[in-house]
Each structure stands twice: as structure tokens, then as C-alpha cells.
Write a protein that binds this DNA or RNA. Structure first.
Length: 453
RNA sequence: GUGGUUGUAGCUCAGUUGGUUAGAGCAUCAGAUUGUGAUUCUGAGGGUCGUGGGUUCGAGCCCCAUCAUCCACCCCA
């Protein structure tokens, strides 16, 4: 058969894996630095754990796993009727009782709800695992991709909100990516819906204003008016959308807009709190930032790489009652997520990966025949024992072939031990990049490479 | 899920109004060079033209379906 990959998935070759690991390690070390602890959860969950948590759109994008044993003759009738429901767009347990993880937050909430008696709060965990979405793939969008999440649960303190902003900035400085970190509060968006006299149209309003930078203010107003927002409401939303200037300026304008709205004022306090911990040029208050996931209740974050059109490379926010979905009330939390695959694409486009990531083998031993190989082999093993990674060329071949192998694998040194060298108890070490070569005594070989490293 | 784009050698791509045996560059392999690699020269291998149907005397080219790809929308990391 002809080999192929499922839509939206990829294989990762050695260079790619090394570069991806570089991103993972950078993020992990900073998570650890801030006191987060690792957690891993299964690739698939009971389907009801996931359904209904991400909105209607999210439910459609969840990969459902077909149950085994659907061909069991004794269940034939039941399964046929249940499958009729699937055709109507409903998923039933008889057909599917498991689904692939859609993000890391809901499985985490499930874990916290199951273990809330045992955990020490505030509980800080990080998680770096793949998630799956049945989306249509395109640039920066995959059906299998990794998220790196960090969350704090069990505390209402805004200190965590500020720390997460700090983590975002720190990670992207380490990776060398120039970003814009945007913040907003769901409370402010709620308040907007209230003062615009459309408290029930919160969803409609956020979806529309989220598109502002894409379709422009006229089209946004058009969409809102079609969705039944009053002229008076439109006027207020328009004023809201045209907030400009520095963070301080925006805050004072918001203050005047929400003088009589408690929720709005609470949202402003959340923003002000974070801003006092950060330089104003690192972070931008963006009142049009909405974010789709509907469990957020407070601060929300989004990270975009400047100069690369790829969507957001990170996002997160505060949710005051995530575990309530699993019958454990009042465990608030806040968290952020990094999209590793998009970060990778950005770094490739901007050529930001360190060049030495691809070096693995330090030295290639040439194969000059059976007896020479037998003589040289123990010296290679000695290098390996000292932590220097080496390879022996697999067969006797023309030198130029062995050289080219070293070149293609980016091996910096070549060690040649032939009959001449055996007699002298030495070897030739050639550095490929410079072309320099020198004679090295065999008992000084380990030392030679230790110094070079 | 909706709309569009593209699919020819390992890679990047040519291929005329439908006409005999489908080409190039790069890469690979072999030789010029039996202990010195990015140069040069010579030669070789490699394709059921994404897949399956259809129209035609004849299809890489036209039609239909299907799969994959990239893009836009929706949504999102």
C-alpha cells in the first residue's frame, strides 16, 4: 500500500525534534523556575468530560472515538437506533464513550476535581502534551499539536495574574521572539454588554468586536446591528472600540464609561493590578480581545508574534469556577497556554533557532578495513565512556564517501586510524569546518576532545 | 463544516490547440582518483503523470468522483 499520514498530522525528523525540544526545554525550565509541577493526563477522556465545555463549535471539533464491538449481533437493534441520533448530530454513549483530548485545561480541571482532597492549594501545575482538533488544517493550524499549559488553582489572588504575564514575557525573551502581549478582562466585556443595554448578547458582542482589526469598525457595527443591538447600544460600543492611546489613557476612558457599573470597575481593577507589575511597553490593554473559550471570567491574555501572520501563539485567562463543571464548587484558577507548533513556525520563519542544535555526534571514526577497525574500536568506546558521542563508519569505503557522511550529519570531527597510525600509536584528527588536521597520540585522544568541548 | 487553489522523478518545476518513446536543474549511485570531503568531467538508475472512473482513434492536458495540499471563512494554539 501507499504510505500516507492522516490529514493535519506530521512526522518530525531529527532536526525538527531537536528544535522542538529546545522550545519545550525553554518553557519547562521557566515553569519550574516559577514553582510549577508537572502533570500528565491520558490522551483520551470519557466523552462527557469534554462535551459541552468548549461551546457548540468546540464540540464539533472534538475527535470522537468509535466504540469497539459495534458489530455485536445481540446489540444490532440498539446500535442502529442510536446511530440514527449520530446522523442528527448527537453523540451517544452507545456509539462513542471516549474522545481525544481537545485542550489541557479541562482534563486538568477534571484532575483537580477528582483530587481536590489530596492537593495542596494553591496548586500549581504545568503540562506539555499533544491535543487534537478535527479542524481543517492550514497555515499554523494542525489537527495534532502540542500545548504547554501552566495553571494555578485555588486562589483568587491577582498576583498570579501578574506572574503569568511575566512568564509570557520571559519565555519569549529567551526564545528571541518579539511579541505583543495583550490583556483584557471578561468582566469589562460583560459590563459593556450591560451598558449597551444588551446583557443577553454578550456572546454576539464579543464575537463581533474580536474581528475589529480584521474587518474594520464599519463591518463590526453592521454585524452588531443585524444581530439586534439598539442604536443607542451601538453608539456606546463604538465609543468603546475607539479607545486609543497608552494603557493609562485607556484605563481612564474605561473608568468614565463604567462609572455606574460594578462589574466594569472590577474588570478595570484587574487590569490595573497587572499593569503595576510590568513596564507599560511590554504589555498592551486591548479591549477588543475576547477569546473564544467560554469558561473565562476575569483577566484574559493573548500573545502574538510581531511580523509573522500566524494567529496567536499563546493565550489564557482566569476562570473562577472551573471545577464546578465536575461538581466541585469554588475552585478558582488562572492559566496560560503556549502553542509550540506555531512558535516553531515563527522561529523557523525568523531564523531564530541556535545553529548548534543539530550537532549530535562529535566525531566519526573512519573505517579503513577490518584489522584497523578492530584496533580503533576500543579507542572510540573510550571516548563514549567519557561522554563524547561518536560513530564508527559502518563499512570500509572510499574516504570521500566517509567524509561526505560526516558532512551530511554535521559531525565536526573525523578520526582516522590506518596502518601508519597504528604503528605510531597515534591518529589523525581532522576538523571538517576548517580543514585543519593534526596528529594526536592515542592515549591523549580523550583529553583532546575534552578540551575541545 | 462552507468556498477556492494546487497535485508530473527523492526535491524544485517545464510539458504547445489532446498526437509517436514525458523532460530539466538539484539530489542519489558508479567511474576519472586504492589515505583526504563542498570544485570539475563522464556515465547510470529512478515516473502505472495523486487515485478511480468517463469522453476520444488517441488523455499529463478535457469531464466526473475521490484523496491529499495550500489559502480564505468559521473558530482557534
Amino acid at each position: 500500500m501507499k504510505p500516507s499520514l492522516p490529514q493535519g498530522t506530521r512526522d518530525f525528523g531529527p532536526e525538527t525534534v531537536r528544535r522542538r525540544n529546545y522550545i519545550f526545554q525553554t518553557i519547562r525550565s521557566i515553569f519550574e523556575l516559577y514553582g510549577f509541577q508537572p502533570l500528565e493526563t491520558p490522551a483520551f477522556e470519557n466523552i462527557e468530560t469534554l462535551l459541552g465545555k468548549y461551546g457548540d463549535e468546540g464540540d464539533k471539533l472534538i475527535f470522537k472515538i468509535l466504540n469497539n464491538g459495534l458489530d455485536n449481533p445481540s446489540k444490532h437493534e440498539l446500535i442502529t437506533t442510536e446511530f440514527g441520533k449520530v446522523l442528527e448530530g448527537k453523540t451517544t454513549r452507545v456509539i462513542s464513550e471516549r474522545a481525544l483530548r481537545y485542550d489541557l485545561t479541562i482534563p486538568f480541571a477534571r484532575y483537580v476535581a477528582m483530587n481536590h482532597g489530596k492537593l495542596t492549594f494553591p496548586y500549581k501545575r504545568y503540562q506539555m502534551q499533544p491535543v487534537w482538533r478535527a479542524d481543517r488544517p492550514q497555515r499554523g493550524r494542525y489537527r495534532e499539536f502540542y500545548q504547554c499549559d501552566a495553571d494555578v488553582v485555588g486562589s483568587y489572588s491577582s498576583i498570579s495574574d501578574a506572574e503569568f504575564a511575566q512568564i509570557y514575557l520571559e519565555v519569549f525573551v529567551c526564545l528571541g521572539i518579539d511579541i505583543k502581549l495583550k490583556i483584557n478582562s471578561r468582566k469589562i466585556l460583560n459590563a459593556l454588554a450591560q451598558v449597551a443595554n444588551a446583557p443577553d448578547k454578550f456572546q454576539v458582542i464579543t464575537v463581533a468586536i474580536d474581528k475589529l482589526d480584521k474587518i474594520g469598525i464599519e463591518k463590526v457595527m453592521e454585524e452588531l446591528s443585524q444581530k439586534g443591538i439598539s442604536t443607542q447600544g451601538l453608539e456606546i460600543i463604538k465609543r468603546f472600540l475607539t479607545l486609543v492611546g497608552s494603557n493609562d489613557k485607556k484605563i481612564s476612558q474605561l473608568n468614565s464609561l463604567f462609572v455606574n457599573n460594578e462589574e466594569g470597575k472590577a474588570g478595570i481593577r484587574e487590569l490595573v493590578y497587572i499593569l503595576q507589575y510590568l513596564d507599560s511597553n511590554q504589555i498592551e490593554v486591548d479591549v477588543t480581545l475576547a477569546r473564544g473559550l467560554n469558561y473565562y471570567t476575569g483577566i484574559i491574555y493573548e500573545v502574538k508574534a510581531t511580523g509573522v501572520a500566524i494567529g496567536s501563539i499563546g493565550g489564557g485567562g482566569r476562570y473562577d469556577d472551573l471545577t464546578g463543571l465536575f461538581d466541585v464548587p469554588s475552585v478558582p484558577g488562572v492559566g496560560i497556554s503556549f502553542g509550540v507548533d506555531r512558535i516553531y513556525d515563527v522561529m523557523m520563519e525568523l531564523d531564530l533557532f541556535p545553529k548548534d542544535l543539530e550537532v549530535s555526534t562529535r566525531a566519526l571514526f573512519f573505517n579503513l578495513g577490518d584489522s584497523e577497525a578492530k584496533f580503533a574500536f576500543p579507542y572510540m568506546q573510550l571516548l563514549r565512556k567519557n561522554g563524547i558521542s561518536c560513530e564508527f563508519y559502518h563499512e570500509q569505503a572510499k574516504l570521500d564517501k566517509q567524509f561526505r557522511y560526516a558532512e551530511r550529519k554535521n559531525i565536526p570531527y573525523v578520526v582516522i586510524i590506518g596502518s601508519q597510525e597504528i604503528q605510531e600509536n597515534s591518529c589523525l584528527v581532522k576538523q571538517l569546518q576548517t580543514g585543519d588536521q593534526e596528529k594526536v597520540a592515542l592515549d591523549g585522544l580523550v583529553n583532546y576532545f575534552t578540551i575541545k568541548t
